[in-house]
Nucleic acid binder design. Structure first.
Lengths: 217, 217
DNA sequence: GAATATACGGAGATCGCCTCCGTTTTGGCG
DNA sequence: CGCCAAAACGGAGGCGATCTCCGTATATTC
């Protein structure tokens, strides 16, 4: 989602799906048996994702969830059953992007080539993804390491980042005192800054500024 | 405020004060005549600032304004009369810090010494101030150039920054393609990252990372 | 010690979050 | 089929936050 078209049909369309956040304020236990969703449930889930995509794009990740439900043509209860917290919804919207970033990381580290350029390429892709909705960068940084559902996405992203970062470090193109976390955080900060700037190459420009700081002196 | 003690008595205690944000959704015209506030009004204003300081410190700049009013022992109407928007309140809380930063800028540029070190000193002070409350960095960046009341604070800060930045640039210690805005924005981003990190020298560490990127290669 | 401008306060309209539970739909099975 | 239990739906409603409106109270002025 997000950058890619509103791909309504989820990867595992006929399987699993809901999975309470559990880490959050919602005490409800995990739905342990993961039987396939009923037809109407699947349909509504897709509608919700589509509506959320549209609404978040217009108003940012802080948009009203009731509005999402309204625009999806379902009741509020249905929304919260599928996505117990806002983060669950964001996570679902961002999932495809996260997987794409993981793939990109694999591609870049497999191919021979400048590890430095690869790092820049990957980070720029990350920044672009993190700018899919206003407030997303914030949500990602806030979720990192807090056990939230969105945290899964953060963790996966961090793993993907680690490969590219470590390769650059091994090639002596990254200062040793800058961790993977630092790198990712600073990239998120770039997205955070660039998201309120209509200049289309603000992301690249800012990223290059901080990236120069991350190289060894 | 913020870093300094809860200095309740405002600089111009007997003069001026309210000044509707005007740029916002509040259509009411400016209170043109700036006659002194009535005694009770001045007292309530001070109580509000004190309460806001405490509440924002505990819960960040997104805290409930009703709670601020409650804790100040005044009605909601009184709060909104004094500070029509949340930003007005934040601006008032931050005012003293802004002036202090302006002073620091003057001191640093007047004194002889390494312009590079001066830049770092000033930016670090800025980062510290921007971390006074959770959410402050966000509010500042959001307000910049949006005509809001908080925008005044941003502008003053930018002026203060410009002096220090331009001096560093003149000494060839800053890359030419990094503007004052960039510098300040990146420092705000550092504050934004550091505010959810309990490591007390995260600010300095992160600032040094980005500062290295801002120097000429 | 009025008179008047000024300021106060809090009830209440509106909106967003989230839950609860009566109702509806679906999918399997005889 | 038609029935039934499980699954899912929906929206009313409680709660808390924002912000306004206006009757009341208080300072200042003469």
């Amino acid at each position: 989602m997000a950058t890619t078209k509103p791909e309504v049909t989820e990867p595992g369309s006929g399987r699993v799906a809901v999975r309470g956040a559990d880490g959050g304020a919602h005490g409800s236990a995990d739905r342990s048996a993961d039987r396939p969703l009923r037809a109407d449930a699947r349909r509504n889930r897709a509608r919700l994702l589509e509506a959320a995509h549209a609404v978040f794009r217009e108003r940012g990740t802080d948009a009203s969830l009731d509005e999402v439900a309204r625009r999806a043509g379902v009741g509020a209860g249905t929304l919260y059953r599928h996505f117990p917290t806002r983060d669950d919804l964001v996570e679902a919207l961002v999932r495809a992007d996260v997987d794409q970033l993981a793939q990109l990381s694999r591609d870049l580290t497999a191919a021979p080539g400048d590890p430095d350029a690869a790092l820049r390429t990957w980070l720029l892709a990350f920044v672009r993804h993190a700018m899919a909705f206003r407030g997303l960068a914030e949500a990602l940084v806030a979720a990192a390491g807090s056990g939230t559902c969105l945290d899964r996405a953060c963790h996966d992203t961090e793993v993907a980042a680690a490969a590219v970062v470590e390769r650059a470090r091994a090639a002596g193109r990254l200062r040793p005192d800058a961790s993977v976390q630092d790198t990712l955080n600073l990239a998120a900060a770039v997205a955070w800054l660039a998201e309120r700037d209509d200049d289309p190459d603000a992301p690249a420009r800012l990223l290059d500024l901080v990236l120069d700081g991350l190289r060894p002196s």
